[in-house]
Design a protein around this nucleic acid. Structure first.
Lengths: 237, 237
DNA sequence: AAACGCAATTGACCCAGATCAATCCTGGCG
DNA sequence: CGCCAGGATTGATCTGGGTCAATTGCGTTT
């Protein structure tokens, strides 16, 4: 199911000045290793809404997000959807034990990834424990986030969910774009609802309520935290 | 907060005939490595309800569960609890990036763990990529389970949650105790509720409902699946 | 065997959030 | 510029599961 709009650059890039050089898996490699590594990955672009891989697909590649945002989700047979996370630049996707992806991933807006064929990547890792350690670190970080999200899904009210989401999302963007009380939300209300285990109406109503109380301002493509302290109180962190 | 009832065996064990030798982290070590590894861990016993470690505690040890069941959970400031998983023999606990545990763990019934001091264990791993790879595998498996659980918490009804839980728990015990339609439930109803994001009343009512329909039978310390197919249908797997 | 303690069950009622159903933007296009 | 489509908002109503409150069942102590 390779989408037609995907474009691949034959080779117009170098890892050494990649945007995610410092934070992604490749941060564990030295300059010499990086030159070798460069041949393994190729940049691939996806446009908004395109699927990068689907749950249950055989895993043929790993992906390193370079630019943009992706939604990672699982579907129930009847169509209910749970977004298990949003991937941002520096995130590494595709690791699994079964040989099949255990969630689907698609682009929210334009996305650039660094794609690695599974086998050569596996071979490259083989004698580079540093890289393995880095991948393990990323997995452990994900796991910690996943557990936090379980608490949110299982034990928080709608207001708390929305407030936690805004703070969490701002926090993640902090590392990428620097601190700001203006939080861009590239994903749809439906995406937010499916991430928080709510309906789109509840998300919308909660935003409106927060805005009426002067806590946030809903702006085009995002929200602005007028009273961050209030939001933090609501999140019951 | 070392509990008084904890007992440590000076050395009455050998790794080579450990119950979890084949499935735990140590499955990645050969006989020679195992002998060296043996000196790193010590068996520690916990009795029912004792806390092995708490969220936010500085991580001083890693733990390999040998016997028994543990509940892993996070608390909100106001006391709401979310159980993020149950640990069984073979599970490895304590990995994190922050240097602090990101959840609490306590014993459900008698528990035996193999405890490793963080620093020596870290040193041992250093030049044994096989062990690191094994730890990574366990982390990836956990991550996959965590994502499945997010779907359950965010998008399933109470009936589906309970049915999925029974099947999932049976599935996990399968590897340890062999196949059976009688599912022991060592944890309390409250534990089940906090795992599923429900209240104790809802869990109890759902069990009763299933029993009235002849789908399960509630027995002392567990349940019996009278109609496993029916339970699977309810789980909407 | 009576009495206690604690988990589990059951019942009655309530409410947060879902569902159903209109609008209301807003941006793209003829 | 006016029209259209898809996302977002808002309103009205419903309900699954929570809350509150007994009651039951059992294992332990005396």
């Amino acid at each position: 199911m390779k989408p037609s709009v995907v474009t691949t650059e034959p080779n117009g890039h170098v890892c050494s000045d990649c945007a995610v050089r410092g934070s992604a898996v490749c941060s564990s490699l030295d300059a010499a290793e990086l030159r070798e590594f460069e041949h393994l990955g190729r940049r691939v672009h996806f446009s908004s809404g395109e699927t990068v891989f689907s749950e249950e697909d055989i895993t043929t590649s790993f992906y390193n997000v370079l630019e943009g945002v992706m939604r990672l989700y699982k579907l129930l047979p009847d169509g209910r959807r749970q977004i298990v996370g949003f991937a941002l630049p520096g995130d590494f996707l595709g690791m699994n034990l079964s040989g099949r992806h255990n969630f689907s991933a698609d682009a929210i807006g334009m996305v650039t990834v660094c794609q690695f064929a599974k086998a050569p990547f596996g071979r490259f890792i083989e004698d580079r424990p540093q890289l393995l350690r880095r991948i393990n670190e990323l997995a452990i970080r994900e796991l910690s986030q996943a557990r936090d999200h379980m608490v949110l899904l299982g034990r928080r009210s709608a207001d708390e969910k929305v407030a936690s989401f805004l703070l969490g999302w701002r926090e993640r963007l902090l590392a990428l774009k620097g601190p700001s009380d203006t939080v861009p939300l590239p994903m749809s209300r439906q995406d937010i609802a499916d991430y928080l285990g709510l309906t789109i109406e509840t998300v919308s109503r909660t935003f409106t309520k927060l805005e009426r109380h002067g806590t946030i301002e809903i702006i085009h493509g995002g929200i602005s935290l007028l009273d961050p302290a209030r939001v933090e109180a609501l999140a019951a962190a």
